[in-house]
């Protein structure tokens, strides 16, 4: 069985470590905040200028001056800091954010990522994604392994305009966890009940499979 959105988020959350500053993109990455493992503390960075993002406000707490990078109303967590956009991207570009999790249309075996533009379709803009992939120490991409039509999103070379080059370290898809290094995808784990053959058939880029590939475990 392939993973659903919540399970992908749950698997990504296992990559969090105590004391991490983390930036979570829109979509599945946002859900990662719901699965922070017990006993560890992470602080969420929102690139519009908030370090220490808390949960959504109650109706009573609603404040137009308090939003996240997805323009949703949020709260500040205990010990949060608020700053301007230049400072926010100084911490991103300067390599101070430990982990960025974001979605993508395509990733290739060199760690290049395409996530912001499909030519001839509406172009909305890259927002902060290019800065995040250029600056974070570690980048995890979440996406489905293949499109609805079965086309692989893990490619030899991205076909869409890039967001960043040589930056993606790990990918968590609905089928597998893969590491990107030395010009290839390395299969680390597979979703429960998903065969290595299925993953091979849905990975267009160079894929290295070594030994028995364990199934992911969910607590």
């Amino acid at each position: 069985m392939s993973l659903n959105r919540e399970q992908i988020a749950q698997r990504v959350a296992k990559e969090l470590a105590d004391g991490y500053y983390v930036n979570l993109g829109i979509g599945i990455p946002t859900l990662v905040a719901n699965y922070v493992p017990e006993g560890i503390e992470v602080m969420l960075q929102s690139e519009n200028g908030l370090l220490g993002m808390g949960p959504y406000p109650t109706e009573d707490e609603l404040d137009a001056d308090m939003i996240n990078a997805g323009k949703e109303t949020v709260t500040a967590a205990k010990g949060a800091a608020i700053f301007n956009s230049a400072d926010s991207f100084a911490m991103i570009r300067g390599g101070h954010v430990d982990l960025t999790v974001l979605g993508a249309f395509e990733v290739d075996q060199h760690g290049n990522i395409a996530s912001w533009m499909i030519p001839k379709k509406l172009i909305k803009g890259m927002g902060g994604a290019m800065d995040l992939v250029a600056g974070a120490k570690n980048i995890i991409v979440t996406m489905t392994h293949a499109s609805k039509h079965g086309d692989s999103k893990l490619l030899e070379e991205c076909s869409l305009p890039l967001t960043g080059v040589n930056c993606v370290k790990k990918i968590v898809t609905d089928l597998a966890v893969l590491e990107v290094k030395d010009g290839a995808f390395h299969l680390l784990e597979r979703a429960p009940g998903v065969s290595v053959d299925e993953i091979i058939s849905k990975t267009a880029g160079k894929l290295i499979v070594e030994g028995d590939v364990p199934e992911m475990s969910f607590d």
Binding site: N84, I92, M130
Partner: peptide, 13 residues
């Protein structure tokens, strides 16, 4: 002219 958010902030700064 689409500009990365951090680059835009730094252009102003």
């Amino acid at each position: 002219e689409l500009t990365p958010q951090g680059t835009l902030a730094e252009k102003m700064r």
